[in-house]
């Protein structure tokens, strides 16, 4: 379980790097590491940009890698819409930092073998990603 702080751009990416290292330690296939790293980074950044505080949990067995990102924040009112490539509510100053292309969730969907998002407006969001190790 690793903590992510909303708005912490300096530390952004640190948690997904840790996840990557753990996956390397347990002998996950490089191809899965490649996809899982990209997806975890996007999820981590969504917490940093859009939410207040979050946590990442990793659960791995020889057959699957399960990554859960749980946050306290505004939640996502319309998940289908948020999944659209290019849809973003990121404010201008975030866009100036190179984020907010609206590609994070579509990337996560492309990289993960299974993506499941649950969100309650005003409370927070839970993202579950599964990667199959075969």
């Amino acid at each position: 379980m690793f903590r992510i702080d909303g708005g912490d751009f300096a530390g952004a990416g640190a948690v997904s790097s840790k996840i990557k290292k753990i996956l390397q330690h347990i002998g996950t296939k490089p191809e899965i590491i490649r996809r899982a790293s990209i997806a975890t980074y996007e999820a981590e950044m969504n917490v940093v940009i859009h939410a207040t505080m979050g946590e990442i949990a990793l659960d791995a067995t020889p057959s699957i890698v399960h990554i859960r990102i749980l946050d306290e924040g505004p939640g996502i009112p319309d998940i289908d819409r948020a999944m659209q490539p290019g849809y973003s509510t990121a404010p201008d100053e975030i866009r100036e930092m190179g984020f907010g292309a609206g590609m994070g969730l579509p990337n996560m969907e492309r990289c993960a073998d299974k993506l499941d998002i649950k969100s309650v407006v005003g409370i927070g969001t839970t993202v579950d990603m599964v990667f199959r190790n075969e």
Partner: peptide, 22 residues
């Protein structure tokens, strides 16, 4: 070829156990 030097054990179940210990 990859050089999987970070892997804690060639058997993944054992590697996961070792990861938890770590």
């Amino acid at each position: 070829e990859p050089r999987p030097t970070l892997c804690l054990h060639s058997d993944m179940a054992t590697a996961i156990q070792k990861m938890e210990q770590l």
